[in-house]
Design a protein around this nucleic acid. Structure first.
Lengths: 119, 119, 119, 119
DNA sequence: GTGGTCTAGACCACC
DNA sequence: GTGGTCTAGACCACA
């Protein structure tokens, strides 16, 4: 990770964690890296990771067990899908379609780009 | 306009101005609202509109004529299209496709939503 | 304020803010002290007040306006009452009644203490 | 027991032990479960139960007999009552009355809830 | 002036 | 070892 985007680092880390879960690299009920571990491996301050974990706990994506660590919550996968899908459909998509109209990009054009993309 | 999003207000206003131009509501070489007028109608601080206009002037989308006001530049329409298209294709689109993959939304689904959208 | 209790300072400050609103000292739509101001007057680090304000914003008790400051939200009073009442009835009260039973304190005794309290 | 509250687990276990004694389930001079037994039945780390027992021993609520186990102390019942009552009257009650005032809950309301409670 | 983020480092309670 | 809180100080973007 390089944190180039303008987005706050702690949110980029949150996205990273969600992605690990969506990709099933970190599965339900599994322990995730400790605050300090992740901070070292991402080369950021532990406070920043702490902020990410607190943020994700409020969203019921991870759970804390006193003195043990953080765990992927039972409903993490579904929660993330629900949350992100809702965000995508109500916030991102309307703007995408708006841009397409203004820029005169139609669906066929998009389809072509979609199939050509580097996956 | 309500400026609810987290995006900076001056950038939201810039988007608004660009949209007026793309929609040909404000055409080439036409005078656009003065800083003060726009500030009043949008209920924001004139400094904020000033910042928008300075920003757009740097991007050669509007021109200033001292003592007269701001005008849509000759090449405004093409400039906006070029800039926005480039941004859309290289920044937005890859993210969109990434989200679609993670959320298991395919092109057919997108097509359906596109055709159903409220324009 | 002296922050004697074991509760985190940022939560004690949150309680303080809620109290100002419940007591109608800070009314709806009114600007509340800036992060820095409150930090100085309470003699704590600005980060601590920031944390309080972020916490209260998530609970829809205060609103932020970019570059201007924080404001008591429209529904702050009702939100606080709802939230605190729910907490009191479902969390505090059962424990209180449990303690009373175990300690053989009955309602008449409580009533006496209630009427004698220093208000 | 599920230890959901934010209170330290060892203190929640201490409360549990005190309750057994107040309810006379564990009577004076009787042997109480060994650290290991209780740890297994509560599904916690033995260290945590150990801490509870040490804590209660300091408060003269239980006594240790080397090589034999822990016992309810002679004065346990009275000690607990005294301690908890003092805590309840000087710490909990003022807060309760304060909350009641702020939330506009009066004694009659409380009385009704008290009589309706699930015992 | 406002809020927001990040780092560095410390200290604490807990398991 | 774990998380949680707090301070101090810096830097940034925004109104």
């Amino acid at each position: 990770m390089d944190f180039q985007s303008k987005k706050a680092i702690y949110l980029q880390i949150a996205d990273f964690v969600c992605e690990q879960i969506l990709l099933k690299k970190w599965k339900g009920k599994e322990k995730i890296p400790s605050v300090r571990e992740l901070a070292i491996s991402l080369e950021v301050n532990p406070n920043t990771v702490m902020r990410t974990y607190t943020f994700l706990e409020e969203k019921n994506i991870i759970d804390m067990q006193r003195g043990i660590g953080y765990f992927v919550s039972d409903s993490a996968y579904d929660n993330i899908i629900d949350f992100k899908k809702h965000e995508f459909l109500t916030l991102d998509l309307p703007q995408i379609f708006r841009s397409m109209d203004l820029l005169h990009i139609n669906l066929d054009h998009l389809k072509k780009l979609y199939n050509e993309r580097t996956r």
